[in-house]
Design a protein around this nucleic acid. Structure first.
Ligand SMILES: [Mn+2]
Ligand SMILES: [Mn+2]
Ligand SMILES: [Zn+2]
Ligand SMILES: [Zn+2]
Lengths: 141, 141
DNA sequence: CAATAGTTTAGAACAGTTCTAAACAAATAA
DNA sequence: TTATTTGTTTAGAACTGTTCTAAACTATTG
């Protein structure tokens, strides 16, 4: 089994963090493992903190908040505004939209470019569109 | 000038409140005046409270919150979720969408049915679409 | 290794919002 | 009208998600 040299591998978690200008600390690596190790996820800060503690990872709530904001700033996460009382973070940073179950507080991805928004007027002078967010609020049928 | 009997007039503010099951108190009438007396508006609780006080209306912040929620429950207002730290209330309860200037915290109506959303998949079993919210986030150009 | 710069943490602080319970006002009954 | 009931207002306390502080700690660099 020949070992290939200079093989371009998927950068590991440490390298991803370093590329974002963040030191690969134990806490960040463990949180990144929970966030990115199991497909697309939607989490709150307290949810991630509880999950980390349950996984035996010693990390404070302040670090969870710090990390979520740092990852968001680095483009590894996106923040979704659906609920007045809790921030939701999305590991899927691609362009997509959401169903939101009000009663469960649960976000569900609507994949890819499924949703199209048309008829948006020109923004006011001096303003440019940053992002178009679509939230489809659901209730029990 | 003959006085017409049983003339169907636009219900005044008192009647609108009574129709919603709310007693027409001084505070509610004054807040309704500020909310509905000058075209469509987007307000926060603290913004409305400040405006009321500036207009010489003695009303507590608790009553402003109570009133905003009661009016929302009665369908006279709609709550718009754009900012994690402040609730915004909209006097325009018709179907419409919004521009949101992140840096100013300002909401701008996109009138009527201008915006169309297509390609929304069927909601999960047992769920029905309650509302489709489109927020176009703006930044300085 | 030492020096530096960045990170973590517990707990305090903060801000928007909700709750409490006593004073008050509108609606209704007598 | 007055008496009674029911709903409303209020100041301030409590609550809750989030941010801040500053001291202890750790990764990185020299
Ligand atoms: Mn959620
Ligand atoms: Mn808050
Ligand atoms: Zn998503
Ligand atoms: Zn509006």
């Amino acid at each position: 089994m020949p070992k290939r040299i200079r093989d371009k591998q998927a950068p590991d978690a440490s390298d991803r963090l370093r590329a974002a200008g963040l030191r690969p600390t134990r806490q960040r690596l463990e949180l990144a493992g929970l966030l990115f190790g199991m497909g697309d996820r939607h989490l709150t800060a307290e949810g991630l903190h509880a999950e980390a503690r349950a996984a035996g990872c010693k990390v404070s709530l302040a670090t969870v908040y710090n990390t979520l904001h740092q990852f968001t700033g680095a483009g590894l996460l996106r923040q979704v505004m659906v609920d007045a009382s809790r921030s939701h973070f999305d590991t899927n940073t691609g362009s997509h939209q959401h169903f939101y179950c009000e009663d469960e507080g649960r976000l569900i991805d609507i994949p890819g470019e499924a949703v199209a928004v048309s008829g948006v007027p020109k923004p006011p002078q001096g303003m440019a569109v940053d992002r178009v967010d679509v939230v489809i609020r659901l209730r029990r049928a």
